[in-house]
Nucleic acid binder design. Structure first.
Lengths: 342, 342
DNA sequence: CTGAAAGCGCTTACAG
DNA sequence: CTGAAAGCGCTTACAG
C-alpha cells in the first residue's frame, strides 16, 4: 500500500461507486445495509479514514473549536494560571463529548488573534479565556462580532456586552466571602485585587464585598484596597503595600487564590499569624488552595459546568441558534485560613 | 461581501491571476515586489485568509500536531495530573514557536487513539503523554510504528523501544532522592509506587532507589514497597497499607508528588510528624509541592525543556529526518519534608 | 438505492 | 515573473 487509501480505493474494493462509499461512511440512510456492510469491511481492511481536509473543504466546516488562552502578564511557560488550566481540561472534555476537536493556543492580548482560526477555517468557532484589561480588548471583541466570527468568552457577565459571555456570579461570590468574614468577627477587611472596570471580574467581586460592608453599616475604605493581578508575585507585593500603609486590618479578601497565596507568604514573612492575626480568603478554589498553610477559604467556580456551558453556547451560535450570556453559581468553601480560632 | 473572500476575489481586485495570488501570499520568490504589495493590500482590504482546509488538502500536511493525553484511572474532568497539565502548557508554547497548531485530546488507553488524528490528516504527527500500563499499550505503539504514523512519546527511555521516547532520567532521580535521604540519616526508606515493568517510569525510579541502597550495603526490603498509581488517593491508601504492615521505616520516597501528598495526609491522620518521625520525598515538582505542609522535597523535571524536545523530535520525524529517544536531566529540590531537624 | 459529475479553495508543475 | 490548468479527496445535488 503506497500512501493512504482514498474513497476510490474503497469503492474499487467493495465494487461500488465512490459516491456510495462516501454516503455509506457518513451514515446516509440512502445506502442499503448490505452495501454498507461491504463498504465498511473494505474500509476496515484498508484502514481507511476519511480525509478531514477534503471533507471539511467540501462541507465548509471543520468540526473543530479553537481555545484562545491569554494572560496579560505572560506567564512563563508551564506556569499558566491553574484555574485556566482546569478550565482547559473541562473544555477539552466537553468538546470531545460532542465530537469536536479542540485547538489550543496561547495568545497575547496584543496579537492578531481576532483574525485567525475562524478565518482560516481551521475552527468553526472560538472560545476566549483569559485575563487582561477588558477595556483594552473590548474593541477586538466588537471586531470579532462585526466579522461574524462565532465565539464565546469566559469572563464577567455585564449588561452591555456585544458578545456571548459565560462567567460565574462574581458579585455573589464577593458577597459570600465578605459575609463569612464578618460572621467570623472580622471588621476591617482589606481587598487585594484590581477594582475597576478594566478588570470586570475582580471588580464584581469587589462590588459584592463593598455591598455587604455597606449593608453592615461598615465603611469601605480606599486604603484597604490594593491593586493586584492574578499572580502570586503580585499578591505578595500588594500585601506588602498594604502592610506599609499601616492601616489596621483583620482580614484579607484576595480577588484570586494566587493573590491570596502571595499574601499569605508576605504575612508569614512579617511574622503575622493566619488566621490568628489576619483571616485570609481567596477566589477560584485552585487545587493548591487546600494545601497551603493554613488551608485557604475560597470561592469555588465549577469549571466542569463552565466548560460545558461555553462549548454548549458556542455550538449553538455555530448552528445559528440563539445563545445567551449566563452566570454560573458559586460556592463558598470555608477552610482554616478564615476561621476564628484553631 | 457575502461569505469569505477567496484567492480569486483577491486576484480580481489586484488585477492578477489566482495563481499569482497564491504564490505571493506564500512568499514565493517568483513574485515581483510590486505585484506582491498590490496583492497583499487587496488581501488586507478584504480581510482575506488562506483557507487551511484547501491548502492542507493540496499540500498533504496540516501544520498541526495532536497531543493525546491519557490517564489510566480517568481523572474527573479538571483534575488532570498537574504534571501533565504543565507539560501541556510547554508543548503548546513549543508548537506555537514553530508555527504549528496543537490539537488536544483526552483518551483512554482502551480507545482507538492509535488510528485517528494522523489518519484523518488533521495532524501531521502525534505526541503521546500519559500514565498507564506500558505493557498494555506497547502493542498499540508498535501498530502506530507499523502504520508509519509519526509520533513521539513522553515516558521512560528504555533500550528496546520501537518508538521515539523522551523522558527524564528517572533512574538518576531515584538515586538522588535516596542518596539525599541517606545523607539525612534515614536508613529505612520505603518506596510508594508501582515497581514493575508495567510502569517503567516508576520502575526506573525504584531501580535508582534500590541501586543506592545496595551500594550503601542496605537491604532492599519488599515489605517497604507498596504499589500506587499517581493520584493522591492512591498515595493515601498505599501509606495506610504500609503503616498496617508494622514494618519500621523512617522515610518515604513516593514515586510522584501526588502520591507523596496522599502519603503526607495519611501520616498526619495517624499522628506522625514530618519530617520528625518520617521524612518524605516525591517526584515531579508540581506547583503544589512547595505549598504542602511541610514543603515537599522532590525531583524537578524541566517541563519546558521536555515540551521543546518532544515537539522538536516530532517535527524531525515529520520532515523525514532521524530522531532519537533521549533523556533529560533531573534536579533534586530539597525542601523541609526531608530535612533532619526543623 | 446507486452512479456520474461538479465543485469546495487552494498549490504547483508546465508553458510561456 | 505570470497565467492556464490539473488535481488534492471529499460531498452532494441531479438523474436514473
Amino acid at each position: 500500500m503506497k500512501g493512504k487509501a482514498t474513497s476510490f480505493d474503497i469503492a474499487h474494493r467493495a465494487g461500488v461507486s465512490q459516491s456510495t462509499v462516501s454516503r455509506a461512511l457518513r451514515g446516509s440512510p440512502l445506502v442499503s445495509e448490505e452495501t454498507r456492510r461491504r463498504i465498511q469491511q473494505a474500509a476496515d481492511e484498508l484502514k481507511y479514514k476519511v480525509d478531514k481536509n477534503a471533507s471539511n473543504l467540501r462541507t465548509r466546516h471543520s468540526g473543530t473549536l479553537a481555545l484562545l488562552l491569554f494572560e496579560d502578564p505572560t506567564a512563563d511557560d508551564s506556569h499558566i494560571n491553574p484555574f485556566f488550566l482546569s478550565m482547559l481540561g473541562s473544555i477539552t472534555r466537553a468538546c470531545a463529548q460532542r465530537g469536536y476537536d479542540l485547538l489550543v493556543s496561547f495568545q497575547q492580548l496584543s496579537n492578531d488573534w481576532h483574525a485567525d482560526y475562524a478565518d482560516t477555517r481551521k475552527a468553526d468557532g472560538i472560545i476566549l479565556l483569559g485575563y487582561g484589561d477588558y477595556l483594552a480588548y473590548r474593541d477586538k471583541l466588537q471586531m470579532l462580532v462585526d466579522q461574524g466570527t462565532r465565539f464565546v468568552r469566559w469572563g464577567a457577565v455585564l449588561p452591555d456586552q456585544p458578545d456571548v459571555s459565560i462567567g460565574c456570579d462574581n458579585f455573589r461570590g464577593g458577597q459570600d466571602v465578605t459575609r463569612h468574614l464578618l460572621e467570623q468577627g472580622r471588621r476591617r477587611i482589606a481587598f487585594l485585587g484590581d477594582a475597576s472596570s478594566h478588570y470586570p471580574e475582580f471588580f464584581e467581586r469587589y462590588r459584592g464585598y463593598a455591598d455587604v460592608l455597606e449593608h453592615a453599616a461598615l465603611p469601605v475604605e480606599p486604603q484597604l484596597q490594593v491593586n493586584a493581578e492574578s499572580t502570586e508575585q503580585s499578591g505578595y507585593t500588594a500585601m506588602e503595600t498594604l502592610l506599609d500603609r499601616k492601616a489596621p486590618f483583620d482580614a484579607i479578601f484576595a480577588a484570586s487564590d494566587l493573590i491570596a497565596i502571595g499574601a499569605i507568604r508576605a504575612l508569614a514573612d512579617r511574622g503575622l499569624s493566619i488566621p490568628g492575626d489576619v483571616a485570609v480568603a481567596g477566589f477560584d478554589d485552585i487545587p493548591t488552595a487546600s494545601f497551603v498553610n493554613p488551608p485557604l477559604t475560597t470561592v469555588r467556580q465549577d469549571t466542569r459546568e463552565a466548560g460545558e456551558a461555553l462549548v454548549e453556547n458556542l455550538l449553538r451560535l455555530i448552528q445559528g441558534e440563539p445563545a445567551e450570556s449566563g452566570m454560573l453559581p458559586v460556592k463558598l468553601v470555608v477552610r482554616k485560613s478564615s476561621l476564628r480560632s484553631r
